[in-house]
Design a protein around this nucleic acid. Sequence first.
DNA 1: TGAAAAGTTGACTAAATGGACAGGTATTGA
DNA 2: TCAATACCTGTCCATTTAGTCAACTTTTCA
Lengths: 216, 216
Amino acid sequence: MAHLMTESILRGPYKPGRIREQSRELILQAAEAEFACHGFRGATMQRIAESAQVPKANIHYYFSNKLGLYGAVLENTLNLWDAIFNELASHDEPADVLSCYIDAKMDFSRTHPTASRLFAKEMISGAPHLSAYLQQDYRLWFKQRMSIFESWVAQGKMDDVEPAHVIFMIWASTQYYADFEPQILIATQTPTLTEQSFTSAADSIKHIILKGCGIC
Amino acid sequence: MAHLMTESILRGPYKPGRIREQSRELILQAAEAEFACHGFRGATMQRIAESAQVPKANIHYYFSNKLGLYGAVLENTLNLWDAIFNELASHDEPADVLSCYIDAKMDFSRTHPTASRLFAKEMISGAPHLSAYLQQDYRLWFKQRMSIFESWVAQGKMDDVEPAHVIFMIWASTQYYADFEPQILIATQTPTLTEQSFTSAADSIKHIILKGCGIC
DNA sequence: TGAAAAGTTGACTAAATGGACAGGTATTGA
DNA sequence: TCAATACCTGTCCATTTAGTCAACTTTTCA
């Protein structure tokens, strides 16, 4: 569970708050797109308001300020991220584990491209708002998976490649199809990335990673 | 050669433009860092000026406006990019070609991380300032390389994987070490990426890509 | 050497920005 | 029905922003 210093869900006595959820969600969605496209500094409250079709003052009713809104958006994103992290479970066979993980990551790129881009922008900027998140579960998760990979290497189930680089290759390759979509579209001369594009890409990545790591 | 609508580089024929080159370069360097970190909208002329240690008005003496400055930075970056593109030459053996290219790309990530990040930010934002560049040489380059790969497949020199995905995997994996440095540092629990980190990563990528494509 | 050209910059402006707030309307529960 | 509370937003404000400009200094070269 990702938890960073962000907007307290309950602002005010919070009685029923039925409308609250809807309005918040509407604003958060618009904000995610705006932040993903222009970054924290480049995004403006005015544009977010227009995109969400609410007066700017309405945003300030639900979120204390720009940073609070950004924190809330980031928290949403990180919760999604966490779910994918845990897809890399410890089945028996390396082939199954990596195949499933690559599929899950690719599916995330397809269904949540803006979340992926938001995360990417934050990283490229030096991850100034992610330190709390990255320090905790993340490190532990990574360490644990690394040791699983190492045990596979020891058992001769895969080549002796540094596990970290394998993970990075999977992350990089799958996220690429969300983050660098314009480049892919122009290179391949296609108007949009279809669901079929993603499965085709996932198949290629699986082939190369599995065979490349000597997993059969 | 990358050429987009940007600041005209009118340097005096001999003497006059001596100071010009220095000042321009100083500003461009500061601007590259600022744009790479905060994107076009998020960057401010004031911060660029402070970073370059010149008055803000001095920037406007050399560059017509913010967009002009950004265009000049982008042009610099794209010229570097072009040089790496052409590293993927047509040697005889696929193994050599891809090994050299991966090394070259990885070297670029190590020596020009901010250029890589600038390019990435621009892409994630939808590449609004790159259309001219991406339409021209880029498409042709890509098409030509694809056909080389296809001939390799036909000759049985490599597995039948879609060439485009192989290229994307190489791009994604190598650029990752520049763009997502914070994530890598935290995951691997190291303070900085050393030259050895990059060669180690390049080796892993080469191993996986070559073997994964059935190139031996 | 001296005047023309190149380079420099403090002070200014208009617009955009994040944010505050008072006074309003809608919803709720008793 | 009727307060109490949640929800809404037009209007304002201080600050930041990109960009201008005219006065100034330095460099160039004939």
